Simulated scan of single mutants.
Amino acid sequence: MRILLVEDDLPLASALAEFLGAKGFVCERAASLQAARALLPLAHWGAVLLDWQLPDGEGLALLPLLRARLPEAAVIVLTARDQITDRIQGLDAGADDYLVKPYDPDELLARLRAVERRRSGAASALLQLPGLSIDLGRMAVQLDGQAVELTAKEWAVLRVLAQRPDRIHPRESLLDALYGLDADASSNTLEVFISNLRRKIGRERIQTLRGLGYKLNTAATGT
């Protein structure tokens, strides 16, 4: 999932972007309303993390534009304002969630995972396939009962496939899960990650549908 982080505290934004990147998310940063508005049309954002107080105005002022351009994106307000009236104002303005600073990054991560589950229609964070278990909440994969170690990029690809195992995922949507806007990905980079995943969880687990994309094979049992 591609995340837009609108936060003017640069050390906080940098640390949070690094944390989310290590969890397999792609996080782009904007330090003002103006910068956020410029980034909105450049990608399909799955979530927006929105600071309330920004150098050029209140983050809530961005909500009407977010709802118009990104109706499916989840918006989580991040703020030091902790009064009930502030929470009500943020939610009534169109935010989906509200997190008070200082917050635990793991709590934010859990809320983002919940967003992903709602978008995919998954009732649980655990996907059980023949011989393969994918825990989207714990970022854990087991093959025949043995833990499988994945890199952050490999996990980013597998997470997209596992969230909607019934869907064919176009190459472009998988690339969106891997790279930021300024990344210079080579044409075969995605195929390298797909190949690595097949080596680790079984070659038949990921189907290639030529000209369409990739799909998790929920019936596969072997390597």
Rank of each mutant, 00 (worst) to 15 (best):
I3Y: 09
V6Y: 09
D8K: 13
L10C: 05
S14F: 15
A15K: 10
K23L: 01
G24D: 02
F25D: 01
C27S: 06
E28L: 03
R29A: 14
A30C: 10
Q34S: 14
Q34L: 14
A35V: 10
R37C: 08
A38E: 15
L40C: 03
L40H: 06
L40S: 11
P41V: 03
P41L: 02
A43R: 14
W45M: 01
V48I: 15
L49S: 05
L50F: 09
L54T: 05
D56P: 09
A68G: 01
R69H: 14
E72M: 04
V77G: 02
T79F: 01
R81P: 01
R81K: 02
R81S: 07
R87S: 04
I88S: 02
Q89W: 04
G90Q: 02
L91F: 06
G94L: 08
D97T: 14
Y98C: 08
Y98E: 06
L99S: 09
V100S: 01
P105H: 05
D106H: 13
E107I: 14
R118W: 12
S120Y: 04
S120H: 07
A123Q: 11
L127Q: 03
L127T: 07
I134N: 12
L136M: 08
G137V: 04
R138P: 00
M139I: 00
M139L: 08
A140L: 13
A140Q: 14
V141M: 03
D144M: 10
V148E: 12
E149F: 07
E149Q: 13
T151P: 00
K153C: 00
E154A: 06
E154K: 06
L158K: 11
L158R: 11
R159L: 00
L161H: 00
P165E: 06
D166F: 00
P170L: 15
E172M: 08
E172A: 15
G180K: 03
G180F: 12
A183R: 11
A185I: 06
A185G: 02
L190F: 03
L190E: 03
F193H: 14
F193W: 15
F193V: 00
S195T: 15
R198N: 12
I201W: 06
G202I: 12
R203L: 04
E204L: 13
Q207L: 14
T208K: 08
G211I: 09
G211F: 01
L212D: 02
T218K: 11
T223P: 11
